[in-house]
Every structure is written in structure tokens, then in C-alpha cells.
Design a protein around this nucleic acid. Structure first.
Lengths: 342, 342
DNA sequence: CGGTTCAATGTTAGCGCTAACATCCATTGT
DNA sequence: ACAATGGATGTTAGCGCTAACATTGAACCG
């Protein structure tokens, strides 16, 4: 019978391995590993010899093997609900910049605002033993919550504040909703409609609406809601304006759930020759750049999106470095930007 | 002395492993592996037993180990030059949607238009044995090009067309530049300035400018260039308009390198009461949504960004599935969108 | 009814790396 | 002079999984 000790030629003549480098440099594999991971623990002359060997054989470390052996990987799983919303891409940018500077890579997942999808992604990602997990929002499916709590690595829940599994960086959406409604009240608007898009899935917009309602209720005013089913884009904002003017012509101001909607409405008003804010005032949320370039400038609440990304990354890095971390949620705040649209 | 065969308690009492599942189900590890990877090769009853066991022990497969053993991973390295540009986030969205549906994850890298950074990222990413690599552009550092050519996996170079290392999906920027310049010529504009932002690093904008020059030269016209040093954002476009009006007041039209600049300029013109296109015409590139909502609507060239992502992903998947792939570059084309701004 | 075939499952040996411990040897202290 | 020390390097045994081959047993065949 075939000699069972000489069966399989498994290696796929690919990249050189650490063993090749070791042979070339006349040292053992572990020394090469040390040169790569803890260079200060190797003597200068040896290190140089190994570095030269790495160069000559063209060695690229296999990080899968390294991570498996050390049970530590250098990537960060990031889960966002949407990539079509610029808000999240800005957060990702903040994460990216901070993590990449420290040699961590980002593994990106998109839930499309679907908690089931989120659960699935968390499962997949945890299988990669990421160094940390960044996830949007505080609400997860039950299974997912359990899975997350079981996991030992750092988890940051971003965008909003509340009772988090581990770290938490965000802003208070309820307060933001109150803030904008308060601003509109100050300006004397009484008939204010709140317009959102697909609010069933965007519960942070619902939180802002709640804040909005509180303020109006306190003033004895109604707080009608228009929830569009399309995505929260310019076009939807324009249609929402039409709809509000048609069905609630007495409306004095519209509080939009985000700046895309608000900008769409404002530009549409420009097109139709409707005076903003005289005929109708318009306010948004997020403080996107475009709002400062339209006429009149859009009143909005600036959310520090990139900052959220950076702070979240910093919190994770501090944890990974074993530093003491902030206890409790980190509030990045928000700023009311009063433009001429209200 | 200590018995050397009983040294180390290496395992970090973490997640259950495939062995636990196997024990629970009363099968061998490989059977569990098969249930996970090639379920059709396992008998129905066995499969169900294993699935139940997976459920009870709460098993999450360790993909590092799996990938190491099989020399195949389920992620795709994606390298873009910028995340602040919505163009790339839309491409990423297309990639994401297509890859995630097939169970691949995206590992994201950002070069900030720095070829050295690109080289570094490629090095890191290849160490993760990705299933494929998606990289922006055809121009790489020499070292990087060599590294890429050596690698055996599928590589797609996206955004532009030309001589690629492997797969190629994009559009012809030279032609796009010609197309817009041709449009402006047709409308009768003779004094046209091309305005870009940081064109030293954005060579695709330079290609469009080249196309622009060709057309103007053919008509015996000059093609002055204004290259702003700021990022290509609204604000920069507004400043560029001021600058053009101040230094080249005779200018009849501005061909902007992208829609952010063009929109910034157009909104600025609105603010200043400058008639577009009567006093000055404005054209952009990319066909962003905002351009269709400003007044007058922005003339632009729509680049199918999400489509680039999807096509790139499809090409990779076809290759990974061993299907015959398209030979040569895949041109996704572009569309001139004539608005009222020209 | 022994032999062939084939589907289902098992055994074994790595994938390429690093943790943990072992060894070696030049210093240092007494 | 010799033990104790400690920095540099080596040896060994996995990390958790899957490729490759082996085995089993039921179905099938002439």
C-alpha cells in the first residue's frame, strides 16, 4: 500500500513562507517572526540579516496564519445600515483614517436597516476574529444582542446614546429633535409638519420626531407627521413639499428628518417660486455642506459625523492598548445652524 | 523535569470549535465541515443532526482557520483613493451589494491618492489572501504593479479603461472630456475655462482635460486651465467662479472637473444674481443627483458609478466561479445630460 | 453470491504562523 | 572561581480548519 506518511503535496507553490526567509537568513522561523512583530527583541545585526532575507525572497507575511496562531487580528468589523447615505460614509471616513493610521483594516458590512441582516453580518464577522466591532445603533435583534454580549472584544455602538453593550459614541437624537422644534417655536412658527422618509426603519429619525412632538405639545400645538415611503433623497423632499402644500396649505414650517429631504424641498421651492421662509420655512438635520450653499441657507442641526468615527476609533484603540477607557456613553453633541430658511 | 508533552494550555476558552459540534452530533469534524461548506454531500439525517448540534453549542465557524486551511478566503480587498468623494462610495455600494449577496465581505482601503500608500495597502491586503482585489485606476507605483502582476487572484482595475493587469471596468475619460467640450462648442461657447481641483493627483480629471483641449484646439480655440488647490467641494467651486470672473471676465463657459465644483459655482452664481447660462455657462462631470435639483439644471456627464461597482463584482464572481470572463476592458459608458446651465 | 461501484463518512496531515517554554552563553556579583 | 542573571535565539506544539486519501457498507450486477 501507499506509504501514508508521504501523501499530499498540499502547499500551492505560492508566496514564500517564513521558513524560506529563515533559511535564507540562517536563523529559525521564530526569529523572523520576532523581527516582524517585536523587532526590539532581536539583536540589531540579526535583524538586519533577516530584513535583507525578507527583501530577497520577497516575503509577504500570511496574516491569516498569524492571526490564527495569535488569536488576534488587525481588522475592525464595521456595520452600518446604509452606504447610500452620506452620513455613514462620513463616519466610515473618520473610522478609516484613525484605524488605518494604526495599522488596522476595516471590514465593511451593510445591513440596509435590516436587523436580521445585521445579525447575520455579526455572525460572519465574529468568525473573522476581528480586533473590535463597530456597529450602528443600540437596537439589535435579540439573538444578535446575545451574541454581541458574549463576545469578549471591544464593541462600540455609534450614532446614538443610551444603554450600550460596551462602548458608546453618539449624540442625543431626542434632544436634537427638541432643539430644532424649539428653534422653530422661537421663530414663531405654529403650524409645523415633521417629514420623514421610511421612518419605520429609521428609528433615530423617530426619536427626533418624538423630541419635536414634546416641544410642540408643550406649546399646545399639534405635530402632524408625513412619512414618505421613498428613500430620503432630494426628489423625495421635493415631493413631500408638494404634498404638504396640497394637503396642509396652512403649514408654516416643515421640519425634515434630514438635510437631503430638506434641500430637495428647498430647491424645489426655489424652482416653483415659493418664498422660503416667508411662505414656508424649511429645516433639516445633519448639517450637510450643501445646506450652506443653497439660498436661503438651510437651517439644520450639524451632527459631527466624522468626529463620531474618530472618537469611536479612539475609544477602541485605547481599549486595545489596555488604557483606561471612558465609562458610559460619549456624547459628541450637535450644533444648531440657523440659516435663513427658517 | 517537566514533561514536555504537556506544556501549554493554549486554547483561550473562547468560542466552541468544530470539534465540540462534532462530539455533540456524534460525527467527525470533517462531516461538520461538509455540512457547512458542501451540504449536498452529507446525508439529510446527518445534516440535520449536525445543524442541531451547531445550534445547541452556539458554534461560529472560525474563518481564519478555514481560510488558512483551504487557502481561500471570502473577502474582497477594495482600494479606493478617497472616501470623501461620493463617487467612490457609490462604487463601493455597487460592489458591496453584489459581493455581499454572494457571501463575500469587503475589506476597505483608502489611499488618499497616494501611490505609496496604495503600495503599502496592496501589501497588507495580499497578506490576508483575499479572494480578489478591486483597485481604482490603472496607474500604480512600479513596485506595486509588480506585486499585483505576481499575484494569482483576480484583480479588477476600475474607473478608467486601458491596458489592465487583469480585469478592467470603467469608462473613457478622454472621450468624456471630448464629449463635454463638444457639447459646449455646439452651444456656441468659444471662451471656455476648464476648472479642476488638485489635478496633480487626480489624473482622470487630467485625462478629461486632455479631451477637452483636443476639441478646443481643433476649433482653433485656447483651453485655459484653472487648477484649484483645495478639495473638489462646493466651496471650491464657488471660489473658482469668483476667480474666473475676476481674472478672465470674458469667459463664456466653465467646464468643471466634477459636479461638486460645478454645483458650488452654480449655487454661488444664483446667490450673486449672475445669470447661468446667459452670463456664464456651467458644466460638470459625474451626473450627481444634486445637479438635477438646482436651477438651472446642471449640464453634466453621468458616470454609472454603482454600475461600475456591480460590473466589477460580477466580473470577479464569474472568474471565481470559473466561468469564461470578458476579454479586455469593459466599457460602462457615460451619458451626456444636457441641463439648462449651458 | 462474490465482486464492483459509489455515496457517505472517517483518518491523517498539514495550512503558515506564534505562544510557551527551553537552551545557550556572555555578564555580573560575591 | 562559580553560581546567578538575563538577553538572544531555538524547539515544540498547537491555533481551528479542510484537502487528500481511506474506509465502510449498501446497492447493484452478471
Amino acid at each position: 500500500m501507499a506509504d501514508t506518511s508521504s501523501r499530499r503535496p498540499r502547499r500551492r507553490a505560492k508566496q514564500p513562507t517564513i521558513a524560506e526567509v529563515a533559511r535564507e537568513a540562517g536563523v529559525s522561523a521564530i526569529t523572523v517572526s520576532r523581527v516582524l512583530n517585536t523587532p526590539e527583541s532581536v539583536r540589531e545585526t540579526t535583524r538586519r540579516r533577516v530584513e535583507a532575507a525578507i527583501e530577497t525572497v520577497g516575503y509577504v507575511p500570511n496574516r491569516l496564519a498569524g492571526s490564527l496562531a495569535s488569536a488576534q487580528s488587525r481588522f475592525i468589523a464595521v456595520i452600518v445600515p446604509s452606504l447610500s447615505n452620506i452620513v455613514f460614509t462620513e463616519v466610515i471616513q473618520g473610522l478609516q483614517a484613525t484605524f488605518e493610521a494604526r495599522g488596522y483594516q476595516i471590514l465593511l458590512g451593510n445591513t440596509d436597516y435590516d436587523l436580521q441582516r445585521e445579525d447575520q453580518l455579526v455572525g460572519t464577522f465574529l468568525g473573522w476574529s476581528p480586533a473590535a466591532l463597530v456597529i450602528t445603533g443600540l437596537r439589535h435583534s435579540e439573538v444578535c444582542g446575545r451574541r454581541l454580549r458574549q463576545w469578549e472584544g471591544p464593541i462600540v455602538e455609534i450614532m446614538e446614546l443610551g444603554t450600550a453593550i460596551d462602548l458608546n459614541v453618539g449624540l442625543d437624537h431626542l434632544k436634537a429633535g427638541r432643539c430644532m422644534a424649539g428653534h422653530l417655536r422661537e421663530r414663531g412658527y405654529r403650524r409645523v409638519v415633521y417629514v420623514g422618509a421610511q421612518m419605520a426603519r429609521d428609528y433615530r429619525a423617530r426619536l427626533r420626531y418624538e423630541g419635536h412632538c414634546e416641544v410642540l405639545a408643550a406649546a399646545g400645538l399639534e405635530a402632524p407627521l408625513l412619512d414618505m415611503d421613498q428613500l430620503g433623497q432630494f426628489e423625495t423632499g421635493a415631493r413631500a413639499l408638494d404634498q404638504v402644500l396640497a394637503t396642509h396649505p396652512e403649514t408654516e414650517a416643515i421640519h425634515f428628518a434630514n438635510d437631503d429631504l430638506a434641500t430637495g424641498a428647498l430647491l424645489h421651492a426655489n424652482r416653483l417660486g415659493i418664498a422660503v421662509p416667508q411662505r414656508i420655512a424649511i429645516a433639516g438635520f445633519n448639517g450637510l455642506a450643501i445646506g450652506q450653499h443653497v439660498t436661503p441657507r438651510l437651517t439644520s442641526i450639524a451632527s459631527p459625523r466624522e468626529l463620531i468615527g474618530r472618537r469611536a476609533a479612539q475609544a477602541v484603540l485605547a481599549r486595545l492598548d489596555g488604557e483606561a477607557t471612558v465609562d458610559g456613553p460619549l456624547d459628541v453633541g450637535f450644533t444648531l445652524m440657523a440659516g435663513e430658511s427658517t
